[in-house]
Design a protein around this nucleic acid. Structure first.
Lengths: 118, 118
DNA sequence: GTGAGTGTAATATATACCTATAACACTAAT
DNA sequence: ATTAGTGTTATAGGTATATATTACACTCAC
């Protein structure tokens, strides 16, 4: 995985795992690979991977059983609201950004339509 | 101005100035306020402001006359392509992000329409 | 109980960013 | 020439991120 050098790696890893969860690639209750395996997979130091996982746990997206492993939350409400949250963040950032550079609502919509057509 | 703590401040300042340029708030050829004034305005250290300005100059968005001040590029092509670049970046990030969390093209379009209606 | 596989923690090192502060170099008006 | 206002550079210190490395603590299967 290639990282954006202007954003902390652990945040980008968190985002990647969240995407897997909201798309069902990682089902609710399913076990997440071990931090050591994940650190290899992402090409990242063990501590950095641990940072990403502990933050995900703090957010309630995964939970951990010491000595056993980490698992995606069983709570589907959490997964659903996570998806809403991620979606809302993307939309807000996009629309605010476009308005910020002078686009009207119609121009924004038209731009999206054209981009999707490609 | 409030900054996103996960993105370098100098990049956010660059983005703010670029927005002023592509929207015409800063006209082409117009003088940009001095780095000292800008550092006050943005509530940021002089070195950080200088960093933002030197990067903007490196990108050709502004040019500098030592002892005089900095000015927005006279080249309208640069301004135009800057707007295209910023717009394209926003659209790509948005669409890739939405697809990444499982949205179809129709769902993306619908989501944008709803968000714009608000 | 031993061992392999988990999560977790600690130390040291390096780099990037931001700040505070001071100084230098140039330009234009007086 | 002097002065005020420019851009520019340099040093030092603090914080956050990421790395390498080592070690500890827990669980489960054998």
């Amino acid at each position: 995985m290639k990282f954006n050098p202007t954003v902390p790696i652990y945040l980008q890893i968190m985002d990647s795992i969240k995407k897997d969860i909201v798309t069902g690639t990682l089902a609710h209750g399913e076990r997440v690979e071990s931090v050591r395996v994940l650190s290899e997979k992402f090409g990242v130091n063990l501590n950095t991977m641990q940072r990403a996982c502990s933050e995900l746990e703090r957010e309630g997206v995964i939970y951990t059983q010491r000595g056993v492993g980490s698992f995606v939350t069983e709570d589907e409400k959490v997964v659903h609201s996570l998806k809403q949250e991620m979606c809302g963040g993307l939309v807000d950032e996009f629309i605010n950004g476009m308005r910020g550079i002078g686009f009207t609502n119609n121009e924004i919509l038209k731009t999206v339509e054209e981009a999707l057509a490609k």
